[in-house]
Design a protein around this nucleic acid. Structure first.
Lengths: 217, 217
DNA sequence: GCGTTAGATTAACGCTGTTAACCTAACGCC
DNA sequence: GGCGTTAGGTTAACAGCGTTAATCTAACGC
C-alpha cells in the first residue's frame, strides 16, 4: 500500500518540500512495517528511525509524537478500507451489497491484521482521526457511513423484519458479527484452547446467518 | 470479586505461608484495580507496589514478571466467567440455554470491561493460561467448552439447519457475534464517529438474529 | 556574500520493567 | 537458648523507552 495520498509537488525551489514529504513517507512506511510485524506497543521510535537510518529525534520534526504517527497511519488505512469497499456500492440489491461488503471487509481484516488491530482493536478515545480529514458519509472515505446508508436503503424497501427500525442498530449488528470473528482470530489465533475452523468459511456462514436472521420472512 | 480461589491454610507455623498468600492477594487486588481503571499497558509495577505500600521489587518475589501477574489475573477471570455461566447449564432446551449464556456473557463483558479487554482483546500468543490449571470441557472452568457442548447437544437434537454440522464453527459464530459488539463497544465507546445504540438492546436483538439464522426452518 | 531558516544530530531527562546485592526477622535444630 | 538457614523485603542500579533542549549545518532568499 502506498502511503502518500497526493502526488508530490514539483517546481524549482519547492524541492525542499518534496524532500521533506519523501522523508515523512519513509517514516510512515517504516512505522507501518514494524507496527504490522511486531505490534504498535512493541515498536519503538528508535527502531523506526534505525530502519531508515535516521536518529529518533528526526521523526519529531515530522510528527508531534508517537501517537500522531499512529493517527496518521489510521487515517490512511481508514481511507484504504473505504476505497476497497466503494466499488461494491454499484450492486443494486441492498442485501446483496451487504453480503459483498461483509466479505470485502473480512478480507481486508485477514489480509491486513496489523492495520486492523490498531484500527478497531485498540482503545482510541484520544487517538481520533480528525473529522475534517475524513468526510462523513462519503462512501469513498467513511466505510461505516456506507454500511449505515445501505442498511437504511434496505429498511426503506421493507427488506427487514419489523422489529428492526434503526439503521444504526442494524448496521452495528452486521458489523460486530464480522468484527467479532476477525478480531478473535487475530487475538487468539495461536491459542490451542480454541479449535479454530477456516475463518473465511465461518465468515461466509456468519453473513448468511445474519441476513437470514434479519430479513423479512 | 475475591481474588483467592481456595481458603487460607491454618496451622501453627504455617502462618508464614498464609501471610505470603495474603501479600500475594493484595498484589493481585491492587493490580486488578489499576488494570481495570487505566489499562494493562498504562499500569506500572511501581504503581501497583505503591498502592499497597511495598517496593516494586517485592512483587517479583510473588510473580516472575509483569506478564505472569497478568496471566494469573486472566486465569482467575476465566474461572469467574465460567462460574457466572454454569448455573445456566440447568436449562434444558439448548437453544434457550445459548440465549441465556449469551446474555450472561455480554453482561460479564459490559460489567467488567477491564478484565474483558485483557481476556479477549489483547494478543495472548505467549500469555497462555496453563492447560493444567483450567480443566478443559469442565463447565465450571471452561466457558468456551461449555458453549461447544451446548451447540453439540443442539446438533444432535437436529435443532439447526443442515448446513451447520460442526459444533466448533457454530459455537464460533455465536461467540464472535457477541464478542464483536462487546469489544467494539469497549474500544470505540467514546468515538463520536459511531452513533451507538444501547448495547444491551442490541445484544438481545443480535442473539435473536443468530438463533433465527441458524435454527431449522 | 550573508543572515535566516529548517531538517537533522547529540546529549540528556524522567520513566519503565527488571535484577544483583544486601538486610533482617523468623524458622528448625542441637 | 543460641545459631545457621531461609525467605520476604529493601536499596541501588541497569538498559531501554518516549521525548526534549541545545546545537550543528546546509541550503534558501536577498
Amino acid at each position: 500500500m502506498s502511503t502518500s495520498v497526493n502526488a508530490k509537488p514539483a517546481g524549482s525551489a519547492a524541492r525542499r518540500v518534496r524532500q521533506k514529504e519523501e522523508t515523512r513517507d519513509r517514516i510512515l512506511d517504516a512505522a507501518r512495517d514494524l507496527f504490522v510485524a511486531n505490534g504498535v506497543e512493541a515498536t519503538t521510535m528508535r527502531a523506526i528511525a534505525a530502519r531508515i537510518d535516521y536518529t529518533p529525534t528526526a521523526i519529531y520534526h515530522h510528527f508531534r509524537d508517537k501517537e500522531a504517527l499512529i493517527e496518521e497511519l489510521c487515517y490512511l488505512d481508514f481511507r484504504a478500507l473505504a476505497a476497497a469497499l466503494v466499488r461494491i456500492g454499484e450492486i443494486a440489491d441492498p442485501l446483496e451489497r451487504i453480503r459483498k461488503m461483509g466479505w470485502a471487509y473480512a478480507e481486508f481484516g485477514f489480509e491486513n491484521r496489523g492495520q486492523y488491530q490498531f484500527m478497531f482493536m485498540t482503545q482510541t478515545s484520544h487517538i481520533q482521526v480528525d473529522d475534517s480529514r475524513i468526510q462523513k458519509n462519503n462512501p469513498e472515505q467513511d466505510a461505516y457511513g456506507f454500511l449505515v446508508q445501505t442498511v437504511e436503503e434496505g429498511l426503506k424497501k421493507g427488506l427487514f423484519r419489523p422489529e428492526f427500525q434503526d439503521e444504526h442498530q442494524l448496521a452495528q449488528i452486521f458489523w460486530s458479527g464480522l468484527h467479532g470473528l476477525i478480531s478473535l482470530h487475530i487475538a487468539k489465533a495461536d491459542d490451542p484452547w480454541i479449535t479454530w475452523r477456516d475463518p473465511r468459511s465461518t465468515i461466509r456462514l456468519s453473513i448468511d446467518v445474519m441476513i437470514r436472521g434479519t430479513r423479512r420472512q
